[in-house]
């Protein structure tokens, strides 16, 4: 019975007219899923931005347009009943920029060197190094975070016993952690660029009498520079974005922006978080558009 039915349906499906209809339907379905998917990706962000202008502090009822939440980010001082002070925000932002900037510089240099070594030379046990570079990308953030916490606390204990100097978790420990995960991302990005580079150009320079250093400075470096730049931008974004690894390697007084925002969310949900989130959103959008514009050139 069911067999017969299925057979009938299959016969029906053979008809070109119905087939076309189904095809159109499927196209429409694909279009709809994509549209819904993209709305799903943007709706929460849109809500966040819209409610950063809502006058109501307590709930999502729209009570008129206000800039007061943005205003509070810049003017809150201690003892006025606010959960935070502007000074804290500026300090967190400055810390984030310091960590991001320094970690990016170190990771970009080390990552680019590794990429050059891996792509331009042949050596034994290359897979070992590739594996080593791959691990920080796949390992859970929290595992990396706690391992750094454990490492630093043990290292600091040993240093204190040997020299009497007492070290604590602070910005340098955060930077060390960020470099450790960013090296891999930079190396992967730069390596892809070097792979596209025609080795003939370098050989030609050498044939014309340039030594290795000169060839590197005049030929290789300028040609792979866009790759280095996008690697650096990726590292900077990842560093600014990172919460988990920073969380475990930060100490008192080394609050970065994500740590600060996390604290705000945990404390109470106020529209001021929407405002600071919107500003962070604009900043990261600015970075993306800049990097796209750079790649276009």
């Amino acid at each position: 019975m069911t067999q017969q039915f299925i057979h009938q349906v299959q016969q029906k499906m053979r008809s070109p007219h119905l087939d076309l209809l189904i095809r159109k339907g499927m196209q429409g379905g694909l279009w709809a899923v994509t549209a819904i998917g993209i709305v799903f990706l943007y709706l929460p962000i849109a809500v966040l931005v819209i409610y950063s202008f809502n006058a109501s502090k307590l709930n999502a009822v729209w009570q008129g347009f206000t800039l007061s939440w943005y205003h509070s980010l810049f003017t809150s001082v201690a003892g006025t009943g606010s959960d935070f002070t502007s000074e804290q925000i500026w300090e967190a932002l400055w810390n984030s920029l310091q960590v991001g900037g320094l970690a990016t510089i170190v990771a970009t240099v080390l990552g680019t060197m590794l990429a050059l070594g891996l792509e331009r030379f042949r050596f034994q046990r290359k897979q070992w190094l590739e594996g080593l570079l791959f691990l920080p990308i796949v390992i859970p953030d929290i595992t990396m975070g706690i391992s750094l916490l454990v490492f630093f606390s043990l290292a600091f204990q040993i240093i204190e016993q040997l020299t009497g100097v007492r070290l604590v978790l602070s910005l340098p420990t955060i930077i060390i952690g960020h470099v450790a995960f960013n090296i891999s991302y930079v190396a992967v990005t730069v390596r892809a660029r070097i792979a596209e580079l025609d080795p003939v150009l370098e050989e030609a320079a050498m044939d014309l009498g340039a030594n290795e250093l000169r060839t590197f400075g005049r030929i290789t470096l300028p040609l792979i520079f866009p790759g280095i730049l996008s690697g650096a931008l990726l590292a900077f974004t990842l560093s600014l974005d990172d919460f988990v690894i920073t969380f475990f390697t930060a100490g008192v007084g080394s609050t970065t922006l994500p740590i600060f925002v996390y604290g705000m969310i945990k404390q109470s949900v106020t529209p001021a978080i929407n405002a600071i989130s919107t500003l962070m959103l604009i900043a990261s959008l600015g970075i993306v558009l800049t990097s796209l514009a750079l790649q276009r050139r």
């Binding site: 080593l132 920080p136 595992t143 990396m144 391992s147 454990v150 490492f151 090296i183 190396a187």
Partner: peptide, 24 residues
Amino acid sequence: ALSLLLFPGTFWLLLFFVVPLLIV
């Protein structure tokens, strides 16, 4: 040239990634 290129990055990853994992 190769060891000059590979050493700093590998050293960093070994000291601040592999060693911490081994301690865990």
